[in-house]
Computed example of a mutant assay.
Amino acid sequence: MTRFTRRSAMGAIGAAATLPVLARPALAQDKLTVGALRFTSHAASFVAFERGYFAQEGLEVEFRFFEAAQPMAIAIASGDADYAVSAISGGLISLAEKGAARVIGGALSEEKGIDGQKILASNAAYDAGLVSPATLDGKSFGITQAGSSFHYMGARIAATEGADITFKPLQKVGAVIGALKSGQIDAWSVVPHIAKPLAAAGAARIIGNVADYLPDYQVTTVFTSARNAENERAKTESFLRAFARGADDFNAALVDKSAGDDAAEDMVRLIHKYVYTDRDYDKARPAIVNGAMRINKDGALNMGSVEDQLGWFRSEGLIKDTITTETLVDPSYVDII
């Protein structure tokens, strides 16, 4: 896994911050590792790092990058990462049930009026008649692992359409992309910064929107170890404050577009340090802009969506019937929406 770290505080940028003076001094810094995917949807952490918000909270952050949600949850439980942002997965829920992990906030959300996650068909499947989700019956659907967000989305879409589909676990996002391009799977659903470039390059076809099937879907959450949630409250609150400031900047620049064109350009360049780093900026820029979905203000959590996800996991036998939102979420950190 790739690591990226910065030790300087960037205090000059922080002087312009509009938030009140924070209680934690930025002198004796707490070192912590933040788990992330190289997705635009993880931008709040990247912004908080690059603009010194973590440093101002007395946090010395190192990123650890993953290629799927479940390995990230395992890293949180084992102490290899301190905080992370990713979708609710069966692995995360099971670790919470064992007392090893807790959700402490919300991140990416589907929101009406904002172009969100897409449902894709391979070119071969599209040419054979998979031109909308209504024609998914009998098709294959790519996922990383059983119990992943891709599994949840695919199952909910199929259930709405009355379709019988076959799920193919491929472990990593990159492997799913390769399988879709080559026609080894028929369909997939994913965030727009991946879906739209695939379609624009002629590598797949967009056949629908996830929001039509899962309105207000809480796509990702912020989570940590139970030990951090219970015993490291000051550090955890500092992390969440910095993360929320990063989310505010991201939303203003690329979602609400209220910060102006220069701020939007600066934001895309910042994100490009972490997302599509193998592409020239001019090629990466449209894909990053296309990934601009809402990151919840102040880490608020859509508990209705979380409850729906847990209900699906229980119905599939992927988690115990006794697991509830109280098992997964530490409500003392969370604003409910």
Score class of each variant (00 low, 15 high):
K257F: 01
L108A: 15
A73M: 06
E57G: 09
A200V: 00
E111T: 15
P133I: 07
S315G: 08
E237N: 01
I93G: 05
Q29P: 00
D262G: 01
I336H: 08
V34F: 13
R227V: 01
A107T: 10
F243W: 15
R156W: 03
M303T: 09
Q309M: 10
R285N: 02
K181N: 04
V131F: 10
L92K: 01
K273P: 01
E60R: 08
T2C: 07
V329D: 00
G147D: 05
K257W: 01
M153R: 10
R269E: 15
I157V: 15
Q29E: 10
N302Q: 07
G317C: 13
A229S: 12
L32F: 13
A69Q: 07
Y152C: 00
T325N: 06
A300Y: 02
A146Y: 14
V131S: 14
S132K: 15
P192K: 05
F63Y: 15
D262V: 07
G162L: 09
R38S: 11
I336S: 10
A23N: 12
P20M: 07
G129E: 05
L214V: 01
V131C: 07
A26D: 14
Q184F: 04
M267E: 08
P286Q: 11
S140E: 03
A264I: 08
L59Y: 12
Q56A: 14
R156N: 12
G260V: 00
G162S: 11
D308C: 00
K273F: 02
A211L: 02
A211M: 03
V268I: 15
E50M: 02
Y152N: 00
F239N: 10
T166C: 02
K168R: 15
M72S: 10
P20G: 08
V275N: 09
V47D: 05
S258L: 04
K235Y: 02
A9W: 08
D30A: 12
L318V: 13
A155Y: 10
F167L: 14
D137Q: 04
G317P: 09
H151P: 01
S132E: 15
A28R: 15
D216G: 10
A15G: 06
R205S: 03
G317R: 10
E67R: 11
V131P: 03
D212P: 04
R156V: 09
V219R: 03
I336T: 13
P286Y: 14
S149W: 11
K139D: 06
D280K: 14
I104T: 00
D186R: 00
L310V: 09
K196A: 11
V289L: 11
D298K: 11
R38K: 12
I119K: 08
K273H: 05
G52S: 06
A84T: 11
A292C: 05
A128K: 06
Y126G: 02
A252Q: 12
D282M: 02
T166W: 05
A69I: 02
A201L: 09
